[in-house]
Amino acid sequence: RLYEREDHKGLMMELSEDCPSIQDRFHLSEIRSLHVLEGCWVLYELPNYRGRQYLLRPQEYRRCQDWGAMDAKAGSLRRV
């Protein structure tokens, strides 16, 4: 689950498959919190699986710093 605000607030989007462009699919370029329910995912800073990568394991991420990012920029997401 992807959230537009910290602490799992605001608009929530659910994802169960790879997403090459978060902007195209959800009209957002920033994700401020996440909740990974199962499996491991890689969040990429840019669309089409480019830029900085962040490995996400099943857990709650209340803010972008929790997954190691300096800002909430999110371009794509892929399951590993």
Rank of each mutant, 00 (worst) to 15 (best):
D71M: 07
W67R: 03
K73Q: 09
E60W: 10
Y54S: 05
V36P: 06
D71R: 09
C64V: 05
P20A: 14
E17S: 11
E4W: 03
R25Y: 06
S33V: 00
C19W: 02
S16M: 07
R57G: 11
R32V: 02
L15H: 04
P20M: 04
R32W: 04
Y3V: 00
D66P: 02
E17T: 09
S16E: 15
R25S: 13
L56V: 09
G68C: 04
L77R: 00
G10F: 04
K73A: 13
E38L: 07
Y3H: 05
F26D: 09
N48S: 09
R57T: 15
Q53R: 12
L43C: 04
Q23K: 14
H27R: 14
L28K: 14
R1W: 07
Y54P: 00
C19E: 07
L11F: 14
K9W: 01
V36C: 02
Y49V: 00
L56A: 01
V36Q: 04
D7E: 14
M70P: 15
R50W: 04
Y54A: 01
H35N: 12
I22A: 03
I31Q: 00
C19S: 01
M13R: 09
A72C: 12
F26R: 01
R63W: 03
F26W: 14
C64W: 12
E60Q: 15
R25N: 06
P58R: 07
F26Y: 06
F26T: 10
P58H: 05
S29N: 14
R5V: 07
G75T: 00
I22R: 03
Y54V: 06
S21D: 13
S21N: 15
D24M: 10
Q53E: 15
I22L: 13
L46E: 15
D24R: 10
E17G: 11
A69T: 07
Y61F: 09
D71C: 14
M70R: 14
L11M: 14
E38G: 10
H35D: 12
R32P: 11
Y54W: 07
R50K: 14
Y54C: 04
E60A: 15
Y49A: 00
Q53L: 03
R62D: 05
S29W: 12
M70I: 15
M70T: 13
E60R: 14
Q53C: 10
P20V: 08
Y44P: 01
M13K: 10
G51C: 04
D24H: 12
M70F: 09
K9L: 13
A69D: 04
I22F: 06
V36F: 01
E30R: 10
Q59E: 07
L46S: 14
Y49Q: 02
Y61E: 04
P58G: 03
L28V: 14
Q53N: 14
E14K: 12
Y44R: 06
L43A: 01
E38D: 15
R5M: 15
P47M: 02
S16Y: 12
R52H: 08
D7H: 10
G39R: 02
R78S: 11
L43I: 09
A72P: 14
R63V: 10
R57S: 15
L15Y: 04
Y3Q: 02
L56W: 00
M13C: 12
G10N: 04
A74P: 03
A72D: 06
R57C: 10
S16G: 13
R62A: 15
S16T: 11
G68W: 03
E4L: 08
I31M: 05
E60G: 12
R50F: 07
S21I: 02
H8R: 12
G10I: 04
L11W: 08
S16W: 12
E38M: 10
E60H: 10
R32H: 15
K73Y: 08
D24Q: 10
S21H: 10
E38T: 09
L11H: 11
G39M: 01
A74F: 05
K73S: 11
W67L: 00
W67H: 01
R57L: 09
P58A: 11
S33A: 05
G75H: 03
R52D: 08
Q65D: 07
Q23R: 12
L43M: 12
Q65V: 15
E4G: 08
P20Q: 07
K9A: 11
L15T: 07
R63G: 07
R32M: 07
F26C: 08
M12R: 08
L77C: 08
D71W: 08
Q23L: 13
Y3I: 04
S21Q: 05
Y44E: 00
R50A: 13
G68L: 06
M70C: 10
S29L: 11
P47R: 06
P47G: 05
Y49W: 06
Y54R: 01
L2C: 03
H35P: 03
S16R: 13
Y3A: 03
G51A: 02
E45D: 09
A74Q: 02
V36I: 14
Q59H: 09
S29T: 14
E4Q: 11
S21A: 06
Y44M: 01
G68S: 07
Y3G: 00
D71E: 10
S76P: 03
R62S: 13
E4H: 05
E17A: 10
K9P: 03
G68F: 04
E17W: 10
D66M: 06
E60V: 12
L2D: 01
L55E: 13
R57D: 10
R5D: 10
D71P: 01
C40I: 09
L11T: 13
Q23H: 12
L37Y: 08
I22W: 02
R32S: 06
L34G: 04
E60K: 10
D66E: 13
G39I: 01
K9H: 10
E45V: 06
R52A: 14
L37Q: 09
L37P: 02
E30W: 06
E4K: 07
E4D: 11
W41R: 05
Q59G: 15
E6D: 06
G75L: 02
R25Q: 10
R52P: 12
S16I: 12
S29E: 12
